[in-house]
């Protein structure tokens, strides 16, 4: 154990301190192979000198913490976790930019396509009702001639406007290309967040073995609810909003 520890680049002073603690603890109890086992070992000698025993116990715990941190690579991983935050920030702001651009592109395409589509609908309705009148024999010759002419114009302009609408639909489709790019970026950030979480959790658990205390979120500015499972303090659809308001008399 100590050979191994010495090869890990700890400062000699720290090693000396640990060794001296270990030595003193070995005087109290049998050689320390495992810290966990030590609690049960030789209770009589432990009882004999409680102060000494406590001292050695603290020393062992400290040693264990130190070794575990290093074994788990936590000393390095905490450093890398902190270093990866700016990277995550950059990636997420890239996602924000991309999604915003996509939304703009889609809405712009709709602004162009919608009036064309509405125009086609309106003209078709107008001509259709005229043709109904024709089949009901309500049109004069002149009116009929005008209708035929209008219909011809309508057909040709519909073809042209439909093409334009179709082009805008393609534009809307192409605006979705952000999903692929942002998806990849989000996945990387997720992996990183997961790593960071587990490192930090390990670290916290080590200093707070009783388990972490859960901090209750009690703000009114939470943004969209990401996971609804197991939550009773939120609504998940408009119906529930309406029911709640109604139950309150609004």
């Amino acid at each position: 154990m100590s050979d191994n520890a010495l090869n890990n680049g700890d400062s000699p002073d720290l090693e000396a301190l640990f060794d001296s603690i270990l030595e003193s603890s070995q005087e109290v109890s049998s050689p320390v192979a495992s810290i966990n086992a030590n609690d049960q070992e030789d209770p009589q000698s432990l009882m004999a000198d409680p102060a000494k025993s406590m001292f050695s116990h603290i020393g062992q715990i400290t040693r264990k913490l130190h070794d575990t941190l290093r074994e788990l690579g936590l000393d390095k991983s905490l450093e890398s976790a902190a270093a990866s935050i700016p990277d995550a920030r950059d990636r997420l702001s890239y996602v924000a930019t991309m999604t915003e651009k996509a939304a703009e592109r889609t809405l712009n395409a709709l602004d162009i396509a919608k009036p064309l589509q509405d125009n086609i609908t309106e003209n078709s309705k107008k001509l259709s009702s005229q043709w109904d009148r024709f089949f009901n024999k309500q049109l004069s010759i002149d009116e009929f001639k005008s209708l035929v002419k209008q219909t011809r114009t309508h057909l040709s302009s519909t073809a042209q406007q439909s093409e334009e609408v179709s082009a805008q639909m393609l534009e809307i489709m192409m605006a979705q290309d952000f999903q692929d790019l942002t998806g990849q970026v989000i996945k990387r950030v997720l992996t990183m967040a997961k790593d960071m979480e587990s490192h930090l959790l390990d670290f916290l658990l080590m200093f707070n073995p009783q388990g972490t205390t859960k901090v209750e979120e009690n703000s009114l500015l939470n943004g969209p609810v990401i996971t609804t499972e197991g939550r009773t303090d939120i609504v998940t659809n408009q119906e529930q909003v309406d029911d709640l308001l109604e139950s309150l008399g609004f």
């Binding site: 009114l220 943004g223 609504v235």
Partner: peptide, 13 residues
């Protein structure tokens, strides 16, 4: 709004 806590709705009402 995206705020969907019952507290939010009551507060707004």
């Amino acid at each position: 709004t995206a705020e969907a806590k019952k507290e939010n709705i009551i507060e707004a009402a």
